[in-house]
Design a protein around this nucleic acid. Structure first.
Lengths: 171, 171
DNA sequence: GGATATTAGTAACATCTGTTACTGATCTCC
DNA sequence: GGAGATCAGTAACAGATGTTACTAATATCC
């Protein structure tokens, strides 16, 4: 963690030419954070077109639904942790899903602070309708890549995820 | 453009095994759209920590500022096109930047519908303060990768960007 | 064993963002 | 040359999201 963020100068890839740091000025179109955000937004919109426009779920509701299917009956906190939602979004998502009849809450026996959340049959059914459509979108996105390219993509994303987490910790 | 999205079945990579489409059920942690959004959000937050927490700009304001530096004096529409902002966000961003003294608007001579936007010295100065910090973050993110890996990442992202655009057009 | 801290969840407010519809300016083309 | 389409930009509303602070339940530890 020897990298300071306050200056642009740090000795990089020693194999390359001396100081030609990627670029000394900022070009949106090739700036990685910008590209990531634009790409994610675009993909996100396509998927929202399904769960939101066609099935009337918000994004947090959709994520909470998926988390519930994956985790089984759990508390709100576990849903939040699994789906990268903060606790307020999670609370709202659960409230929304409950009002639409997709889940039910029951007090946990041993700890009455948290409630155990169960999907209803309707919730299960909704998931079963949406999931294949959404998976088809992912398939479409990846279709152009070979198996090698896909695993490369996976590796690279993993690296970025790790690195982004480190960056976040440094504040 | 022969790919339909409405069904999950399409004959893909003929070299691979018959139908084992990536996964038949959805796992958030490995679901590409989810990973992209989470990663982009994380990176985005780190960068916002600079332009927002430290320099009091909103994200659209920051993007418009960058676009202005890249493009020189232009109209709001050109800023929007260059920075992937819709026209309302752009309008608000420009208003905000103007109020803070970072730009000035003047009526365009030939077409009085649009206004030509000029950065002030303060706006230039602000950019010069923020840009290096933000570029350093990108450098940090990519530091772990070799030159080959970086160009691979670029290639793969380009592919996804293209594919996401196609997907969006299909609605 | 009881004051203090911590935790799960939520209410209430402020802010941001998306949408619709409008104004005024310019273009089109009969 | 003028009615109607189109375009740049914005106002105004609605909905979503982030923040702060609160309640109620449980843990801690002197």
């Amino acid at each position: 963690m020897s990298v300071e963020v306050n200056q642009v100068s740090m000795p990089k890839h020693p194999a390359a030419k001396a100081p030609p740091e990627q670029q000394t000025s900022l070009h949106l179109q090739s700036f990685l954070p910008y590209r990531l955000v634009v790409l994610a937004d675009q993909v996100s919109h396509c998927i929202a077109h399904i769960y939101s426009d066609r099935f009337n779920l918000t994004r947090p509701e959709w994520r909470a639904l998926v988390a519930l299917v994956e985790l089984g009956p759990v508390s709100a906190t576990e849903i939040a942790a699994h789906s990268t939602l903060d606790k307020m979004s999670t609370s709202r998502a659960i409230k929304g899903l409950e009002e639409k009849g997709y889940l039910r809450r029951a007090d946990a026996a041993e700890d009455r602070r948290n409630k155990i959340i169960n999907l209803t049959a309707a919730g299960r059914g909704l998931y079963n309708k949406i999931a294949p459509l959404v998976l088809a979108q992912e398939t479409y996105l990846l279709e152009i890549f070979s198996a090698d390219e896909r695993s490369m993509l996976d590796r690279l994303l993993r690296g970025l995820e790790q690195r982004a987490q480190d960056l976040q910790k440094q504040n």
